[in-house]
Amino acid sequence: MAVKFDRISNLIIVLVTLIVTSYLIEICSQLIIKKLPAYDSRWVFRAKKPPAYSDSPYFSAEFMHESSNGEKGKFDDKVRRLVNFEGKYINVIDGHRRTAFVPEDAKNTVYIYGASTIYSQEVPDEYTIPSIVQRKINEITTQYKVVNYGVSSMNSEQQLFFLHETTLKEGDIVIFFDGGCDIIYKVYNDYEYGLNINTLRNSEKPGVLESRILPVLEKLKLIHFAELLKYIKQQSPPLHTRNAEEVNARAIKASENFANNIRLAHQYSKASGADFYHFLQPSIFSLKSRTKHEQLLIDNFLLTPPGMEFVYTHSIDKFANQNDALNADGIISVDLRSVLDNKQGEVFLDFAHTTERANEIIATAIFSMVRWKR
């Protein structure tokens, strides 16, 4: 009888200990969460009119609604294709972001391929890089119309895929503006072929924390502890981005593949009688110095994925070296990493995306490098 009583007593002690420990963990988690930096997610941050939007004449709740809803796409096993959208500020027609200021009597086409920075959902149609390039072309000739081939998340290989679907003619111009998504998806995310329907499905699979641990904690009413674990997970760099040697190895492979895609794009363009230009894009990490606000954008792991700066730092020189090699091969490849160093005011909304002032600088640089026929 005494043995049975001891077992019951021990069990009660264990249960009480577990309950008290759980309660202490929950209280401590709540206190810790209150002291952690609170960051805004992408659309919450933008809706508050951050400094990059301070002088933007179009900024409004209506624009923000279109900005967050106008960029839609469908993935296949190769690329992501845009879905048409009609709005006041943002329009997608025949699978392409609308270019403003297009002349009616243009004889040739300028095709600008890139990712989200070329699509530019951060600004209305007339402020995208392709639209600004078009505006500048119109000042000297009406021979060209610009087509915006920007699609979010596309790397150089996927841009090449879109180019191969394009029928070029003598006198056309092809522009590739890239580098960022090759680093993001091939080095940071370790997606061999970039982002497509297959890698998207794999990336959406929940991990052990989301699928097993958090549901149990929520059932046990350890809500703050679950929130703390989610916070820690969100701000922690992926395991495969923490080792410099592994990152360097992927960066070498990605940069070599990147350069090969540019060479193939150049060959395809020249075979059709079109001129080809390549531009290595800038980012917040390539600035020679940062403002306090820009550093806050990097520190906010909801705007800049944790570990991205580490990966970019270990990758970009390899891409720049390939840029030099392309020029040595007779391909016009321009390094625009420093093009925003002398910008006035804030232009970044996160580590990669900018508003119209930066787009104006970038478009001016692109326009100045192209040999236009008048």
Rank of each mutant, 00 (worst) to 15 (best):
E227S: 07
E71Q: 12
K205L: 10
D275I: 06
A106Y: 01
K169D: 09
H240W: 03
L326G: 00
K107A: 08
T99D: 12
V334I: 10
E139A: 15
H240L: 01
A2G: 00
D341S: 00
D178S: 14
R250D: 06
V14K: 06
V334R: 00
V79Y: 13
S54Q: 15
W372R: 09
L280K: 01
A61R: 15
Q143F: 09
Y268M: 10
L24S: 02
D275W: 04
L82C: 06
Y312V: 09
E192P: 08
L222V: 00
R263S: 01
R371D: 01
L264R: 15
K373N: 13
K219N: 07
N196E: 01
I284D: 15
I129R: 04
L195H: 13
K373H: 07
T354R: 10
C28Y: 07
T166W: 01
V14C: 08
L297N: 15
S152V: 14
S29D: 12
R7P: 00
A271R: 15
G171L: 10
R135N: 08
A100Q: 11
L36C: 05
T166K: 10
R242A: 06
S29F: 07
L239V: 07
N155Q: 15
I132G: 04
G73T: 05
V151E: 14
K48P: 00
V83F: 10
V347K: 09
S60H: 15
S131C: 06
A2L: 03
V147A: 07
Q30S: 12
A358Y: 04
Y144S: 12
I223G: 11
K219T: 02
S152Y: 08
R242C: 09
G345W: 00
L214P: 02
T128G: 00
E356Q: 13
W43C: 13
E86F: 09
I93L: 13
R371Q: 04
S156K: 09
F45Y: 14
R201I: 10
E86D: 13
V3T: 00
K292D: 04
P57V: 05
Y58Q: 02
R98V: 00
I366R: 13
I175P: 03
V147W: 12
R46C: 01
N91K: 14
S29T: 07
S54R: 11
D125K: 02
D335S: 03
I183Y: 15
L297D: 10
L336P: 09
K318Y: 01
N202G: 11
V110A: 03
V151F: 11
G150Q: 01
R374P: 05
N323K: 02
K35V: 02
S255E: 10
Y312L: 05
M308K: 13
A38S: 09
E66A: 03
Y39G: 11
T166E: 08
